[in-house]
Nucleic acid binder design. Sequence first.
RNA 1: GGCGACGUGGCCAAGUGGCAAGGCAGAGGUCUGCAAAACCUCGAUCACCGGUUCGAAUCCGGUCGUCGCCUCCA
Length: 480
Amino acid sequence: MSLKIYNVLSRQKEEFVPLTPGKVNIYVCGPTVYDFSHIGHAKTYVSFDVVVRYLRFLGYDVLYVQNITDVGHMLDTGEDRILKKARQTSALPMQVVETYTRAYFEDMDALGVRRPDISPRASAHIPEQIAMIEQLIKEEHAYVHDGSVYFSVASFPEYGKLSGRVVEELEEGARIAVREDKRHPADFALWKKAEPEHILRWPSPWGEGFPGWHIECSAMSAKYLGDTFDIHGGGIDNIFPHNECEIAQSEAAHGAPFARYWMLTGSLTLDGIKMSKSLGNTMSIKDALARWRAEAIRTFILSSQYSNPIDFSDEAIEAAYKGWQRIWGAVSLTREQLRHAAPGEITPDVMAMLAVTREQFIERMNDDFNAPGALAVLQDLTRQVNGLINEGGPQTQGTLAAIDALFRELGGDVLGIVPDREEGGADAEREDGLVRLLIDLRNRARANKEWATADTIRNSLKELGIVLEDRADGTIWKLG
RNA sequence: GGCGACGUGGCCAAGUGGCAAGGCAGAGGUCUGCAAAACCUCGAUCACCGGUUCGAAUCCGGUCGUCGCCUCCA
């Protein structure tokens, strides 16, 4: 069975056939760096992280580009949001940009999101954007008015094909501000003339100004991925106008199809309400990471299909965390057993079971990256491994190593929820040694039926976040 | 008003024509010094109405409801 992707452009699931066999070029709309990233960003970027990880798992040579918007993203007051932040914090605009770009990568790193191959900044691609605008003017898809340049929606009949919007209806909409300088209310800015107080400015054929928000994605995706590329991703909330404008600009300028598959992630609500800067009900990734470990957040996000909306709540993420603990418990148990397992080959039964698991996992992921289904497969594996180790007696090195390898491959490499080892930094080994020493002392007490001493050690460790579990074959510990 | 998603057991959620995955919570059991973990067992006619079909959660029509977008937002 081959990979199928739900293509928003065609509104149906399609078999994925890359432009160039074996290679996938993918572009995902990145963040505007004027504030800390929130858990909505986490949903989108964790989702695409898994998409890219899975494509690589399948053997594709993936080139993943994700922009950093550091200019041109305006508020409806006409003020650039980065300039606004700079003014509020008495900082230079590029200081603001640098601060939040770094914070964004820190957050993504902490969430286990692998970095894109290229993270181009809008401000570093002004010449490319100007060149593209000139091309659009030449092709009569854009016009100049008083130092600004607008894209003419009327010149591109397919405008609206992604979002299902119809230009005529937009015209009637009362919510689109009619600007004197636009020929059509739906026309959008490619280049804006900079007023004297606007610090972020560049020279252009039309005078000093700055690029419109949409053009960066068109210019930078073309530069790094080509006029036509395989997958374009982003959050569903940007389908209109942003994504629609990208398509119009790119296809009008290049005379070639833009992205072939459009994948858009569902929005995230917080306690049932849409999270937005204007409403003020946001939760930053840093806040979330202070309360839950990254794997719990990833598991929560991957518990529903990427295209569906999800609601973030304490109950929901707690349930996801408990579910993750089951998987992690089986992985830890496997690795613990592996420390002193007898040499030996993998048994045929286990080999067959692992092969079926791997097959089912791939089947689920091939169905439009069905991560929830893939998680269910890992839960089945978890149940079988627990049964095998707890009831099936001691397992050989070969068996345990194969189980561990499969967890690493599917849960680790693809989903990013099974770490190579429990975190603990440089002191991890020392900590492990100390805990094992305490376990040894406690077990001597238990042998003498000194239950009070044994329980004191266990309870004290629990307060430090270390949980002991007495098994028939020995005591193991884990972080609670 | 327009566009688009969605409504599956207490909660989350997979499943696009053929006996309804998985997780969380709950109940009972096994194991255990106790605990924890684990394992076993137990639960849904899939919002409602009508239609197509031998057969529908899945297709079609309608009703009700929730959410997102249309203005900055991943």
